[in-house]
Every structure is written in structure tokens, then in C-alpha cells.
Design a protein around this nucleic acid. Sequence first.
DNA 1: CGCGCTCTTGACGAACATCAAGCTCCGTGG
DNA 2: CCACGGAGCTTGATGTTCGTCAAGAGCGCG
Lengths: 249, 249
Amino acid sequence: MASETKSVEELLQPFFRKILLRDELGIEEQRAIAAAADQRVRFAAGDDLVVEGSRPVHSMLVADGFTCRYRLLSGGERQLTAIHLPGDFVDLHSFLLKQMDHSVGAMTECTIITFPHERLVRVTERFPHLTRLLWLLTLLDGSIHREWLIGMGRLSAPQRTAHLFCELYTRLSALGLASDLQFSLPVTQAEVADAVGISAVHINRVLQEMRQRSLISWDGGLVRILDWDALVEAAEFDDLYLHLIQEPR
Amino acid sequence: MASETKSVEELLQPFFRKILLRDELGIEEQRAIAAAADQRVRFAAGDDLVVEGSRPVHSMLVADGFTCRYRLLSGGERQLTAIHLPGDFVDLHSFLLKQMDHSVGAMTECTIITFPHERLVRVTERFPHLTRLLWLLTLLDGSIHREWLIGMGRLSAPQRTAHLFCELYTRLSALGLASDLQFSLPVTQAEVADAVGISAVHINRVLQEMRQRSLISWDGGLVRILDWDALVEAAEFDDLYLHLIQEPR
DNA sequence: CGCGCTCTTGACGAACATCAAGCTCCGTGG
DNA sequence: CCACGGAGCTTGATGTTCGTCAAGAGCGCG
């Protein structure tokens, strides 16, 4: 994906699509966003985009690749709190929270577009509806946080894992980045373990069981969902929390 | 606390204080908020303020009492995703998300102020800075969600419980609603269990251990923190995620 | 007085972590 | 060409944490 050769508008397509799934977005608004974009930056898998404690002066949007929010605990354990796909802001919240209370890492090689906070302030001064849409994006993050929280508290490890696969496929296919019940997930089992809050050994056993029950396969970075209905039922997955409804916001 | 006799401005004090802990708030802005307020409503402990699936036409602010966001799973298990204190909006996110993906319940008797969404839209059209502050409040919710998520994934039940007490005391004392390492928590053990994601039986054993280690006492709805430093260390508590810093947003 | 709610206790089992080892695959350098 | 090493995946054994089931105690309330 030669993203070095793409224009900013092209790189912003997943972002526009994400918004257009939930509301309308005027040409003026699209131009305002494109104008607020600053640089494009590439990161290698494993790099940190933002580190805990820092005070970013711009926010970053994923144009290509997967990133995650995470924090390390005193004993070295790692916990992800979000996985970002193309079209997602990784740290739009830093625009108002100022100081990062967690880090953001690249799960794969990825392309990022930066938005200086001063330009975002100007957007909020001039484009109330667009401001509400940006706000909405951070609310969607919160909604996903709550869904993960419910899973962590009350679902088993196999259920949470199933839920994660349902969520990733739903989000990717809504953007047109996945279809036919399969999607690229070029990350290690340990990263999925850190997302669902279990050990690297246990995620391995969970995945084996899921494969054996013909729910999914996962080889060479490609996840295939073999039985969507069974996966959804196991995970108690309901996409309401993703708010994939187009209406005035 | 005869909140029936209080003026709207008085009822909004915890809310103003919550904002003033993080930024400045002009007189005009305070007036705009007060003008956007509509009714005051009282709820009894156990009542639902908002139910999953509904489409609220106003958002609710807690003036007095404790509320929680929660969801019930298919097996009847309950998981809280947030606890709201005076000054917190319980569903400001519904202003843009439109449909509720969880319910909100009253943990204690409480007094609520409603804000019609149409008036909130007008605020976003006329008061960009105030809009950013409201946005900030929802970002703080998200920040707390992430903190809980990290705890659920990587901390033990005693650690999560200790963390919750640290958080509640920090949030309450910042508002001037608690001091001397004690605060009122007139809820059942089962509700705390639902917050930290464990069973009612297990929270009981966790609390016994915490009492025996002289970390806390909890009798008659009053929590006393007996050893703040030990509690903080056990929970790996760091209040950075509460963003209690006054600066331009 | 009796009922229901909350808290408490004990016994048992399931889910998951941890430790340790071996495996495959793949890139690197001799 | 092969030896080496590292990263990721897999497996087995063992222990801890926590859930579930069941029962009882204390207490407020009708």
C-alpha cells in the first residue's frame, strides 16, 4: 500500500467513511479537516506513537495499519485499552486532556496523519457541527471502552476473545476494509492476550479451542470467521455500542 | 439535604467545581449552563434514570447522590462501567450517541438536573470553549473507563477494590465532598462487587481481608481509609488519569 | 412475630496464571 | 550450505484465585 504516494484526501478516506456511517459531512467540513491535517508520519511495528506522561501538541489519525493504547504495570504486565484501525484518531482526547495517561503503540507498520491542536481549536471555533462529530468519535471510543469493561468483568476468556474478533470484523467491514468474514490481523497471540487481559499461554489454549470448535481460523496473519452466528452467540455480541446508524448529530 | 429548596445555581455547584478544577469558567458560561438546565428530578435508590436502548432527549447531571452505568448480561450478571458523583453528567454522551447502549441506575436517593439536547446543541453553536469543557467531561469518563479496564485486566480483586476506594475518595475530596480520609458510601457490597467485576461472596472476603490488614473500615455506609499510602501502593493508584490540573482547554 | 435483605462462612470446583521445556520457523552470519 | 539464535507458538504440570452452592446469622420493617 504505497501510502507515500497518496494525497492527504486519499489518506483521509477511512476517516470520512467512519463519520459518514454515522452522519452527513459537508464538503466545507471535509475541506476544513483536510486543511487541519499537517504531516504524514510512518511508524514501524512496535514503535511508540505517544508515550504516557507526554503532552502532545498534535493529535494523530491512523490512515493505515493497526495501533493500540496500552499501559505497563509495575510488574511488567501490559494491558491494552483500545485497538485503532484506519480512520481512528489514536489520541484525539489529548487535545483537551493535555497529558497522556497511557501510551499508544504501533501494532503493525502504519501511516499516521497529524493534526496540530491549535488547528483543532480553530475548528471548534468555526465549525460547531464538525466539532460535534469529532466529539462523537471520542464518545465512540468511550463506548468501546465500556463494552470491553463489561467483557472483562463478566465474560470468560474465550468469550472475550470471540467478542474481540466480532468487533474487529464489524468495524473493519463497516469501513469497507474487510469482507467475506475474514480480515488481516498481523499481530502476535501475546498482543491479543494483552487486549483481552489474559496470559500468553492461556490465549494460546483459547485459540486452539476456538479452532477446534470451528469458530475461527487464524493463520499467517489472516483471521477467518468460520461460524459468525456461533461466534456472536458465544460472545453475546451486539453491535449497538458501535453506533453504526446514520442520523443528525 | 433539602435539595428541593435549593436554587439551580446551588445544585450546579459541584458541577462548576468539577470544571474549575481543570480550567477557568466565565460568568457568561456559567449563566449559559444554568439557562440550559431544565427540570430537577428526584430518584429513589434502585430506580433507573435511563434504560438501555432508549433515546433520551435530555442529558442528566447528578446534583446529589450516587448513580452508576451498568448492563445486565444474558445470565443475569451485572457489570457497572461507571460510578457518578455529584457534578457528573450520567449520560452527556447520549447527546451525540443518541441511543443508550447501557442503563443508568440510582445507587442512592439522588437529585438530578436535566438538560434538553436542543439546548446543548445551542451551547455548541454559541460557546466553543464551553463546548470543549463539556467534551472534556466525557473525555474524563473515558479516561476512568480505561483505568478500570487496566485494573480488570491486570489487577487482582483486592487491588481493584483498593483502587476503587482510592478513586472515589480522590474524586470526592477534590469536589470538597469528602475529607479526613473518609466518605459516605451507602451502597451494598454486591454493588461494589458489580463495579470491580467479582462475585458478591468474594467481595465480602476481600473486604474482610482489607479490614484485617487495617487498610479500611466500612460500617454503616461510611468508608474510612486507615492507611492511605498502603492503599495507594496496593492499588498502584496514580491520580494522573483524573486530570486534576487547572489549565486552558 | 415473621419475612426479606444483607452479610458471613465453609466446602468444592472451574478458570486461569505461572513455570518450565520443547517446538517450528525464519533470518543472519560464518 | 549449514550452524546458530531469537521470536513466536505449543504443551504439560502445578498452584492460586475466584466462582458457585449451600447454609446460617443479624437486622430492619411491616
